[in-house]
Amino acid sequence: MFVTNKFVKSSRLVRARPVRSVAVTAEAVPPPVPKLDAEQLLLEVNQASGAGLEFVGRAADGQVGAAFVRWPDGRDGVLTRGFGSLSDLRRTAGVLDAARQHGLPVPQYQLLVEVPGGVGVVQERLPGRPPTVIDRALLESMIALTDRFSGLAADLPVPSMYLLESGPGFCLHESLERYDDRTRRLLGWVHEVGRDEPSGMTGDDLVHLDFHTGNVLVDDAGELTGIVDWDGIGRGDQRFGLVTLRFDAHVRLPGDLTWYDELLENVLSPAVLRLYWAHMSLRLVDWSIRHHTPADTTTWLNFAETRMN
């Protein structure tokens, strides 16, 4: 997830009237997602598999956590705790294998092993590093990359938008219901969108549900070398990633993003854009309430409300 205090305004969007949010007590808000205990997970993975992985270090980016590890033969990997069952993650691994065959820079899953409380995942460490320069060129490269997701996910389930019920650790409705009157108004709109049509994604495209600039890697020339964090994966509409990236750009790229808003309005019908906007609004407002500051929550509320209709 991505939440910062930076704030930009698009000239095509109607800026919402600033209203200061007042957080409720910690007891009333659902708890944050716990950080990964990488050393403990590595111990469990090695005990269950005999892989002999060596701890290298913690990944600096990411809200929940990952760790860099090394195989006995010198290969580098990334250790995370997988979401879903072992069979779900094996299916994800197969889809990513097919995506690599189509030339997409996605990691191979090197090891999947059941551990207490879930599944340990060791995946290939792709070349490159997180981008330090976020500009229009990077956004346009990422936008173009989504065209290559077309038709690659026939074997995956369609993910829920969670507009009428809470998601599994994210998109929690309780956070918005308990925070303040403004978040309750947003939640009411989210419910309204969830009862309308379309109520979910359609299509057979590969969908990265957290497609933002923190989940890509670049080389020294700024060229894309990898797309990471495939815990959020599904079948549906490749254009969903454009809305996720637009929310990211709101806080990562100061300046006029009229061109991006025009792109969304040209490639998505008003009803589909409204559906995807409601999901991202719910997701980021909930996450900011539980993991960040009232200022972050206000930032996302301001942006969410620009398309509340």
Rank of each mutant, 00 (worst) to 15 (best):
M1E: 04
T4S: 15
K6V: 07
V8N: 11
S11Q: 12
A16S: 14
A16F: 10
V19M: 15
V19T: 14
A23Y: 04
V24C: 14
P32M: 08
P32K: 04
P34S: 11
L36V: 12
E39K: 09
L42A: 03
S49I: 08
S49W: 00
F55N: 08
V64K: 05
G65E: 11
G74K: 06
G74Q: 05
L86I: 09
S87V: 12
D88H: 11
R91V: 11
A93F: 04
R100W: 11
L104K: 06
E114R: 11
E114F: 00
V115T: 08
V115H: 01
P116D: 12
G118K: 05
G118N: 01
V119G: 07
V122T: 01
V122P: 01
Q123W: 03
R125I: 08
L126H: 04
L126P: 01
P127F: 06
T132A: 13
I134Y: 09
D135N: 15
R136F: 03
L138M: 07
L138A: 09
L139V: 10
S141N: 09
M142E: 03
L145I: 05
L145K: 05
L145M: 14
T146H: 03
R148S: 13
R148A: 14
F149P: 06
S150N: 00
A154S: 14
L156R: 08
L163I: 11
L163N: 08
L164T: 14
S166R: 01
S166H: 03
G167K: 00
G167N: 04
P168A: 10
C171I: 00
H173E: 07
R178P: 00
Y179H: 14
Y179M: 12
T183M: 00
T183H: 07
T183D: 11
T183I: 07
W189M: 09
W189L: 10
H191D: 10
E192M: 05
G194A: 09
G194P: 12
G194C: 13
M201I: 13
T202A: 14
D204G: 08
D205T: 02
D205R: 05
V207T: 08
H208G: 02
F211D: 01
L217G: 07
D219F: 05
L224M: 13
G226H: 04
I227D: 01
G232N: 13
G232A: 15
D237L: 13
Q238K: 15
R239G: 04
R239Q: 06
G241M: 01
G241R: 03
L242H: 09
V243C: 02
L245H: 02
D248R: 01
H250G: 08
L253N: 02
P254F: 01
G255P: 06
D256T: 02
L257Y: 01
L257G: 04
D261F: 02
V267N: 03
V267T: 09
L268K: 09
S269R: 13
S269V: 14
P270T: 11
P270F: 13
R274D: 14
R274Q: 13
W277I: 10
L282H: 02
L282I: 02
R283T: 12
V285E: 05
D286G: 04
H291F: 09
P294R: 00
T297I: 12
T298W: 00
T299S: 03
N302R: 14
E305K: 05
R307Q: 12
